[in-house]
């Protein structure tokens, strides 16, 4: 592989990383918001969210990406590829994250909540100061799992023309006729990114031990 091949690989890696990072950031927060709304059990809204979660969880990423990209013009929306890609990844990961957050809510200790209310905390302060810090730590293994699924599933967005870390290996081997080296490098780069996530997870797990009473 020559210098330009390396450069293409790194650019592809960057595309994968930033599109995934944006999708993860939005997806984790949106999942939390959906979980919160679902706690309120608002009729119709709740059913719509359940429908969204079921559909998003059952739809392959490739299908979702194609659908968003191809239907956008008909809906009068003008997406570039990156936005469509981010939207597809986000819609997918949000559904899974919402379920992770929801189970963290459901399993949160009633006793600790009562102790918070008994000191005069409002539900909002209780959520922010007592529940959320613990829910983040207990949900993190699941959330990071979902993040690494998202990154590993991200080559699906190549279907709408985004040149990500996997797609770029095709382009390189089309010129060099040596498909193996770029694929091996791409694999190593994916492992490095996922490795960072696992490292983060370890740090939080150490803090999680404290929560086991």
């Amino acid at each position: 592989m020559n210098a330009s091949a390396w450069q293409m690989l790194l650019e592809g890696a960057w595309t994968t990383v930033w599109i995934s990072a944006v999708s993860i950031a939005i997806g984790v927060l949106a999942g939390l918001v959906i979980a919160l709304i679902r706690l309120a059990r608002i009729p119709i809204v709740d059913q719509l969210l359940v429908l969204y979660i079921s559909v998003a969880r059952a739809t392959p990423l490739v299908t979702l990406a194609l659908f968003i990209f191809l239907s956008a013009p008909d809906l009068g929306l003008d997406f570039n590829r990156s936005v469509a890609g981010i939207l597809a990844l986000t819609l997918n990961t949000t559904a899974f994250n919402a379920e992770i957050w929801r189970s963290a809510f459901r399993n949160f200790s009633r006793e600790q909540r009562e102790a918070a209310m008994a000191t005069g905390m409002t539900p909002w302060i209780t959520f922010r100061r007592i529940m959320l810090p613990q829910m983040v730590i207990t949900s993190l293994p699941g959330l990071i799992n979902e993040m690494s699924f998202l990154i590993k599933g991200s080559p699906a967005i190549a279907v709408i023309g985004i040149v990500d870390l996997t797609r770029v290996t095709n382009r390189i081997s089309a010129v060099t006729y040596e498909p193996l080296p770029p694929i091996l490098v791409a694999g190593a780069l994916y492992m490095m990114v996922i490795g960072c996530l696992i490292w983060l997870q370890r740090i939080f797990e150490r803090r999680a031990n404290r929560l086991a009473m």
Partner: peptide
């Protein structure tokens, strides 16, 4: 205005 002490302590572990 009330302070409560519970059977199970209910401290906040974090």
């Amino acid at each position: 205005k009330t302070g409560m002490v519970f059977q199970g302590f209910n401290l906040w572990p974090h």
